[in-house]
Design a protein around this nucleic acid. Sequence first.
DNA 1: TCGGTTCAGAGTATT
DNA 2: TCTGAACCGA
Length: 823
Amino acid sequence: MPNLLAHLNEPQLAAVTLPPQHALILAGAGSGKTRVLTTRIAWLISTRQLTPQGVLAVTFTNKAAREMHTRLAAMLPINTRGMWIGTFHGLCNRMLRAHHRDAALPQTFQILDSQDQLAAIKRLLRTLNVDDEKFPPRNLQYFINSAKEEGLRPPAVEAHDEYSRRCVELYAAYDEQCQREGVVDFSELLLRSYELLQRNELLREHYQRRFTHVLVDEFQDTNRLQYRWLKLLAGADSSVFAVGDDDQSIYAFRGANVGNMAAFEREFKVANLIKLEQNYRSHGNILSCANALILNNRHRLGKNLWTEAGEGEPVRVYEAMTDGQEAQWLVEEIRALARDGHARADMAVLYRSNAQSRVIEHALFSAGLPYRVYGGLRFFERAEIKHALAYLRLMENPNDDGAFLRVVNFPARGIGARSLEALQDAAKAANLSLFAAVETLTGAAAAKLGAFTRLIEALRSETRAMPLPELVEHVVARSGLLAHYQHEKEGQDRIENLRELVNAAVAFLSDEGIGQNVPADLGVANVAAPPAGVQFANVAPDIGAQGLEGAPADAADPVAPDTAPELSPLAAFLSHASLEAGENQAGEGDDAVQLMTIHSAKGLEFDAVFVTGLEEGLFPHENALTQASRFGDAASGGGAGRQQGAPPEQGLEEERRLMYVAITRARQRLYLSFSQTRMLHGQTRYSLKSRFVDELPDEALKWLTPRVQARGSASLEGWGGAWEGFGGSRGRGAGSGFGAGGAAGARATYDSGRLSGPEQRAAARFDRGIAYRVGQNVAHARFGEGVIVNVEGSGEDARVQVNFGREGMKWLALSVAKLQALG
DNA sequence: TCGGTTCAGAGTATT
DNA sequence: TCTGAACCGA
């Protein structure tokens, strides 16, 4: 244990060792948030306050979930497989597979990614003969997802005009279609799981008893439904440990609700608010820029980053005349850094929008500098992969009309639009899936369609005994996909990807369970047994190491999972493919400059960071300034919109937080650049420098180009001015007041309390039956409940250090203090 | 069924 | 300016 806690700073230690109470950890950028979260879990387990089964730890991305698994496995001698650590979607998937009957789903339900969902909506509109000009599929998709994320089923969506009433009808029709086909979209995973828990009291209580500790990463990014889901899962005896940073909330546009932080504090009566403000990433000048900038936001919980590292280098600012020149300057600077020994992979070029990467890529490419662009198509989103997956899905679930339509005529089998139309009519009339309706047809079309369904059935029987990778390989070949691409001129890459799919299957098998795709809930039995002698004090007796989920299924028991123990490897692989889109580009191994949007940079860090395009209208983006209208076009009518009536400054504040995120990515060197002109939408646009540049402290900046006076005057005046003589630098590169004192922050205090008078001595005898040990929960008359984090001395001199949460850390002499042992 | 033309739209994005 | 989607003709 001591080594677990070693090297934690005071607030970190306080957070990690909090007694089992709700807590909100305000974790600034680079403050060791993930470390605190994982160490907290490790500490609770190793002090026997918690078993691996009692943990529910939830993140947003697979990457973060993997990171948590890895770190935890490094700290504890346990197998983290089977633990409930994963993404919201991954965990909901797991719950729905385990209780699929209760959730009214087939065990092998397929998951629609956004692409699939959009295709399903388009298909729906076609079936219903709905004018897709009037009801653009994208808007409908947004409408449906927004409603689901508000927890609203069609009947609950308010519609006060004809248009929104129609949207609601289409929403209902879409849900029916999904149900018929046995498919579930991303928001449905959440909502279905939420409703399952809400409806089934026994199940809910089971999970509530089981998850004594609920830990949430990136809490500021949770949407309303996710928050409600957490509230349902946290029972009376659960402690919720939420870690987040309101200053890094940059996803309101996709439904994130920062308000959840304040709501959590209020609704859970959070007594422990701990701020992690010591930054281990960036030098002082960088942090002073971040701090000064974010101070301009009014709606904050409040936080100030500090570092023990020195001021470091000044933040460099560059003004270009054109976007092309800005890119050229980047190239020079990157070359210079590389000459100084910096790895290119440790440099990142950030921009507000993807379109900006063009110019930069062009310049890097011409200069022969290797680079890697984030974003774009990910592995499992590629067309050829989706085709292969469609075959596999159809084998698992013939009702999946989306998959059917995707590959029924790919590769071409002479099945044209007319045949399909006939098939769709027949299916609709008989209320059958397309696959099943094939049998009802007659004629020439029927023969070809029949050949297709027989192919699928043949694939199913041929591969029955095959291991997954072989199965995938077989299907890729037998379906004709491979041959199709072999005949295509530019099919080589696609063939390569299809081979890679086989490798993905191999990899999936080898680390199955590391992600959130453990079949059903049955990995629990694989969890290494806890150290001998561990009692499951905080865990309901029916959930020991074997776990309820490890027990044989019993349909009569409403809490028991109702699936057979194993989801087929194929079905598990398919959910993996939907839930984890995979890498977006090859070449990761190269020493390449990293190009990405600021959004994708969140959570990453680099030695040198270039934040480019700091221009009004671009960053802050004009759409964010004129906001409001953007939200709730389709959805507003239904009351399902996001951010309704958001005041205009909210858009600006989110942009500013984005800038804050950008700045705090840099470890040593930060460059800010902007251009007087920029090619945008085919037109040259004259830009003013971003207000964000003006919000930074002069003394932390070093101008690489002559600085133009007041805000806004940057643009045209400098234009044409021959200021080749660079190097006019203003910044003396120094701020003061960093590093040293500022450990403002954690509320916890660390006095060594000798609080009791001699008269209490008599009462101080501790129940000898229970030894004082680290992790022991105790109660104190004055300080309330706490947990022992340290024991020192013995006999009369024995002292214990107790973390009382809000009341802080105290050293208490056992001979004096009245302490009562708790469960 | 494919390939070329035309036209609209152009912010950020995970699952 | 560039891209992606839809559409039409061979």
